[in-house]
Design a protein around this nucleic acid. Sequence first.
DNA 1: GTGGTCTAGACCACT
DNA 2: GTGGTCTAGACCACA
Lengths: 136, 136, 136, 136
Amino acid sequence: MSELRQLPADLLHVNTGGHEPIYRQLMMQLQRMVAAGQVSPGDALPSVREVALALGVNPMTVSKAYSLLEAQGVLERRRGMGMLVAAQSSAASSQLERLDMLRPGLERIAQEAQQLELSPAPVIALLRNLMKGSQG
Amino acid sequence: MSELRQLPADLLHVNTGGHEPIYRQLMMQLQRMVAAGQVSPGDALPSVREVALALGVNPMTVSKAYSLLEAQGVLERRRGMGMLVAAQSSAASSQLERLDMLRPGLERIAQEAQQLELSPAPVIALLRNLMKGSQG
Amino acid sequence: MSELRQLPADLLHVNTGGHEPIYRQLMMQLQRMVAAGQVSPGDALPSVREVALALGVNPMTVSKAYSLLEAQGVLERRRGMGMLVAAQSSAASSQLERLDMLRPGLERIAQEAQQLELSPAPVIALLRNLMKGSQG
Amino acid sequence: MSELRQLPADLLHVNTGGHEPIYRQLMMQLQRMVAAGQVSPGDALPSVREVALALGVNPMTVSKAYSLLEAQGVLERRRGMGMLVAAQSSAASSQLERLDMLRPGLERIAQEAQQLELSPAPVIALLRNLMKGSQG
DNA sequence: GTGGTCTAGACCACT
DNA sequence: GTGGTCTAGACCACA
């Protein structure tokens, strides 16, 4: 029997105000955590009810995120055990794969910067600053 | 000389496929054009009907974009004569102000990069690449 | 031959920004000037072109105001002489009649004050202040 | 106790006959109700469909009023759950703030009274009368 | 259940 | 010519 790690529900965050749907915020966060190896195949996810309570959102919303990730093969539903990270979910992804998850966002930034007639230098400087900040 | 510049309608583009509402795409494009100084206070905007025809969308959709920009102080209504860029819309914004329009997007990128356990270097390299591409 | 007074075009004002149509602003102003006796039956009005130029509005807008006042019997069109204040326009109105012109606006104020749960005292105090200001 | 107050839809009224657009009538009514404290931050608004039904207008018209108030920071959207009065909407406004909402109208009255060469006394008397009427 | 978006079309008001 | 308003109805996304 492998020892079951249980992902704490309070690792997830949600921004109710923005335009991005809550279920999608949850999906993307979980996907990133899997990709980064912060959670491994076989690890258990907090129950729908638990997450819903911790985040103050509707349980159906959490359930939707879980179900979509299951359909994507990222999660697995185990009878009586809730959801856990799927075995074939290739554990942590390579740096290149993870970088690719950022590509759409970066492409959009690049396009907007061009429309704002901003040269790469200041944009990159700002991004470097923000990344130092959140890591330091 | 009361020479009135008229923004050509075909400078606007719209992506019907995506999730972002058409009216919002128009709003953001116009806002960036004003900020970048590609269009100046007092310049006339193409008529609602003109834009609607050029983009193949419903006039009300264009009108919604215009109205919201007016409520935001970016545009001004000249009764019976169309819309124009508002006077107090501070002409072209400074580089710092324009950079600030990118900040939310960059903050999000930084947060996601952290969750993906990506170091600044590769992310910044990718962004630099994308920005070179759109400028070349 | 009675001596013809000519109303100067710059007595009229117009607020392009608001919701009230320009032609209506002109109509109401002229009506108030007649009612107050600031202009008398037989007095000539500035030409459409003159007013349009002085106010920076479309001549058709001025013309519309004049025509509607003519239809109302306030103005008279005299061939080759432009518009003049109609003879039967009862010269200056009585105080009661003039007060009645303010009634709709005051009724609206009263209704809004009630919805705002404002008692009469402060509203009346503010109005008294504003009237002193514009008269002093 | 998470007791949610729900604003009844029949508190809203609409005058189809006048010139003022329906959506704007709704906006102003709601704004005054918030300012007067008749409805508090966190209170739920009647659903778009409910109001539309009660008033016999198109749901889009109601939705427009709600959306504009949201853009103005008066209301907040709870995805899939309806609208509620925004938290930062400073609860009931002070008497001074509410009085300020009447200022533009009163300024206009004062200006018109001056053009009508009316002295403050009769105007104020009329207003006092009208306000008594709506309170009795 | 909630609001959001878009369309097609009619009608209006202003300039 | 300009934008504004409203309707009726369809379809979508979210919770």
